[in-house]
C-alpha cells in the first residue's frame, strides 16, 4: 500500500545552552536532538525507541513546536498542501496545531487539577473557538464514551480518577479537535502493566476509527513492538536505525539496535545479552565520528574519523553505520507476533 507522507522532518536540531554564573556565561550546549531526519506516513504508527535521556521527548516537543527548535525544517501535509511548520506565524500556527496534538506521559500532571474533566477535554475547542457551549459538551461526552468512560464523569474533577482513567481523559482531550497527527510521549509508562495493554488497545482502536497518525515514543521495546508499523531507534540525539517493524526486529543493521534487542528476554532461547560497555557519553562533548563508537563492540578506526551518513528514507530499512552491510547482527527470531 502506497501511503503519503504526513510529516517530514529535516535535519532537526534542538540544543540547550548551559549557563553559569551571574552573567549567564554560556559554558556549553546539550545537543538533545542533533540532526534528525524522518518521514512519518499517513495513518501509520512510527515507534521511537531509545534509552532515557536520548532526546525522545525533546524531539516530540520540537516536532509540535512546543519548543522552538534550534535548526532544521518540519513539513506538515495539511489538506494536500505542504506547510513548513517552523515558518508559520502565531495565527497560522494555531490552525496547524489543531491538526497535531500530544498525549503526555504522566496522567497525573498533564490534566489541570483545577478544572473539571469536561473543561480539560474541551480546552482545545475553547481556545480555537470551535462550536458553542452545547455542542462542546456533547462532543466531550461522546469522546468520553469513545475512550471507554462514562458520560457522567464530565462534571467530576481529575483527582477522583485512577491513572488509567486519567490517561483516557488525556486521550479524549487530545482527540477533541480531531487532529490527524498525534505525538504520544510514553503514554503508558506511568501506568500499571495490567492497564497498559488496555490503553494501547484503545489507541489502536481509535487510530482505525479516526485515521490517526502516531509518533509513538517509548523506552520499552515491548510496547513499541506491540503498536508500531515502523520503528526508529534513537541514540544520543540521533536516529541510528529505522525500518519496518518485523524487518528491523529480525534483522537489525545497527549495533545499538542489536544491543537493545538482546536485552529483551526470549522464551525458549538462551539469552545472549550484549552488555554495552561504559555509559552514554557526555551530551555536551559528543564523540567524533560515529556517536556510538565509545560503546560499540564493532568499532574500528574509521568510526572515529568519519560520521556515518544518514539518509532520509521512506519505508526502507536504513541504519547509520559504516558497516551496516557487512556486519552479521542478531535480531529477535522465531518469535510469534505479540
Amino acid at each position: 500500500m502506497q501511503q503519503d507522507t504526513l510529516v517530514e522532518i529535516n535535519d532537526l536540531k534542538q540544543y540547550f545552552a548551559i549557563e553559569k554564573g551571574i552573567f549567564n556565561r554560556k559554558v556549553g550546549e546539550i545537543k538533545a536532538v542533533n540532526g534528525v531526519s524522518l518521514k512519518i506516513k499517513q495513518r501509520e504508527t512510527l515507534g521511537l525507541v531509545g534509552e532515557s535521556g536520548c532526546g525522545k521527548s525533546t524531539l516530540g516537543r520540537a516536532v509540535l513546536r512546543l519548543q522552538e527548535p534550534t535548526a532544521g525544517d518540519i513539513y506538515f501535509n495539511q489538506e494536500d498542501e505542504k506547510v513548513s511548520v517552523l515558518e508559520l506565524n502565531n495565527r497560522d500556527m494555531r490552525k496547524v496545531r489543531a491538526n497535531m496534538q500530544m498525549i503526555f506521559q504522566d496522567p497525573f500532571s498533564s490534566l489541570n487539577e483545577r478544572m473539571t474533566v469536561m473543561d480539560n477535554i474541551i480546552e482545545p475547542l475553547v481556545v480555537n473557538n470551535i462550536g458553542d457551549k452545547a455542542s462542546r459538551k456533547k462532543r466531550a461526552g461522546d469522546l468520553l464514551e469513545q475512550v471507554g468512560l462514562r458520560r457522567e464523569y464530565l462534571s467530576r474533577y481529575p483527582h477522583s480518577f485512577s491513572g488509567g482513567q486519567r490517561q483516557r481523559v488525556g486521550i479524549a482531550r487530545a482527540l477533541s479537535i480531531k487532529p490527524q497527527f498525534i505525538v504520544a510521549d510514553e503514554p503508558v509508562s506511568a501506568l500499571d502493566v495490567s492497564v497498559q495493554a488496555q490503553i494501547l488497545n484503545l489507541l489502536k482502536k481509535l487510530q482505525k476509527e479516526m485515521d490517526l497518525t502516531f509518533l509513538f515514543i517509548s523506552h520499552d521495546l515491548g510496547v513499541i513492538r506491540y503498536v508500531s508499523d515502523r520503528i526508529a531507534v534513537m541514540y544520543m540525539g540521533n536516529i541510528v536505525e529505522i525500518g519496518e517493524r518485523e524487518e528491523l526486529l529480525r534483522n537489525p543493521y545497527h549495533p545499538y539496535t542489536e544491543a537493545l534487542l538482546s536485552a529483551v528476554p526470549r522464551p525458549g532461547q538462551r539469552r545472549n545479552r550484549i552488555v554495552l560497555e561504559g555509559s552514554t557519553p557526555d551530551p555536551i562533548n559528543l564523540p567524533s565520528g560515529c556517536i556510538f563508537r565509545t560503546r560499540c563492540p564493532y568499532a574500528e578506526k574509521k568510526c572515529a574519523e568519519q560520521k556515518p551518513e544518514w539518509e532520509n528514507v521512506e519505508g526502507e530499512h536504513f541504519a547509520a553505520c559504516h558497516f551496516k552491510d557487512s556486519l552479521e547482527l542478531k535480531g529477535i527470531k522465531n518469535r510469534k507476533r505479540a
Binding site: L66, R97, S110, R114, E123
Partner: peptide, 25 residues
C-alpha cells in the same frame, strides 16, 4: 509542567496559560 505544555499544545496563548493554568495552580 505537563499541563502547561498541554495547554500550549491545545493552542492556548501565553496570557491564557498564565492566568488560567499557572496562577490558579
Amino acid at each position: 509542567e505537563q499541563f502547561a505544555m498541554a495547554a500550549r499544545a491545545a493552542g492556548a496563548s501565553d496570557f491564557r496559560i498564565i492566568t488560567k493554568h499557572l496562577l490558579p495552580a
